[in-house]
């Protein structure tokens, strides 16, 4: 077999894999613009009516607002806790440091169902009613990890010699932090925050166990699909979730990618 043939075959294979991954998404996107409320081929026509319907649906509005609040607040918590944890682990050598590093990262690797059930039991044990606050705590467990990982990776790559150079030139520790450490962390913090928000915005498993009676957007979608009603509206909402999640991830990738060139 010649090199050209194998290259062509490989390329076809790659396209097939991409198609396999993105075909379902493409279907949802198409259905979102379906003019009929019956999902059948061929689509009878193009329409944006389901976006209007969804926008005026109070349930959807409430769910969207709840998701945005949960995403923003858990991202804010993650920024503070995640970066503090990474400073601590990076700067100080203490007994159990590796263990702490491992434990901080664990929630991201742990199946969501375990985190969810564990949190649910813990809240009922402590007599805490499920609310926005419990959703936020649940989301924060994995949002912290994203920020922590991003900042720690940057600290490990940047700091050493630059911090020494700054001290050498007469900067006190606070000046060094403000003028050298922080500016080199900005993109890591921004990309960490975007990823954290994206994770929170489409999270469903942990949310199921921590949300009580309220619906986040993914919970509303899940409920609507199970009931089998409002399907066209669901497709429109899914498309919104898709955009809101993909954009931050794409921006975050660009940010960290550009830094990587240096």
């Amino acid at each position: 077999m010649t090199g050209t043939t194998s290259r062509v075959l490989l390329r076809i294979w790659a396209y097939l894999v991409v198609a396999f991954l993105f075909f379902p998404i493409a279907i949802v996107v198409l259905y979102a613009f379906n003019s009929s409320n019956v999902q059948a081929w061929p689509l009878p026509g193009f329409s944006t009516q389901w976006f209007t319907v969804a926008w005026h649906d109070n349930q959807v509005r409430d769910a969207l607002w709840l998701s945005v609040k949960a995403g923003l607040i858990s991202t804010a918590i993650a920024l503070v806790l995640g970066s503090l944890a990474s400073f601590g682990v990076h700067k100080f050598k203490f007994f159990g440091r590796e263990t702490i590093s491992f434990l901080v990262v664990l929630p991201l690797a742990l199946p969501g169902i375990i985190t969810g059930v564990a949190l649910n039991s813990a809240f009922s044990f402590a007599g805490v009613g499920l609310s926005l606050m419990t959703i936020i705590i649940g989301h924060a467990t994995f949002c912290v990890v994203v920020v922590y990982n991003n900042v720690l990776a940057r600290l490990r790559r940047v700091s050493g010699s630059l911090v020494e150079a700054s001290m050498d030139l007469g900067a006190r520790p606070w000046q060094t932090f403000r003028l050298v450490t922080m500016p080199s962390l900005t993109t890591a913090l921004v990309s960490g925050a975007l990823l954290a928000f994206a994770l929170s915005f489409d999270e469903i498993i942990v949310t199921t166990f921590t949300a009580g009676a309220q619906n986040t957007l993914p919970l509303w979608i899940f409920g609507a699909i199970r009931l089998g009603q409002q399907l066209p509206e669901v497709n429109a909402v899914v498309l919104v979730v898709l955009v809101v999640t993909i954009l931050p991830v794409a921006i975050s990738t660009r940010l960290t990618g550009r830094e990587g060139i240096q």
Binding site: L169, R172, S184
Partner: peptide, 20 residues
Amino acid sequence: TPPYDRDVNTVFQNYALFPH
């Protein structure tokens, strides 16, 4: 004495210029 209180400056092997 910490580096920032010494009247000494260093040219580092990898230069350590501030990239930003």
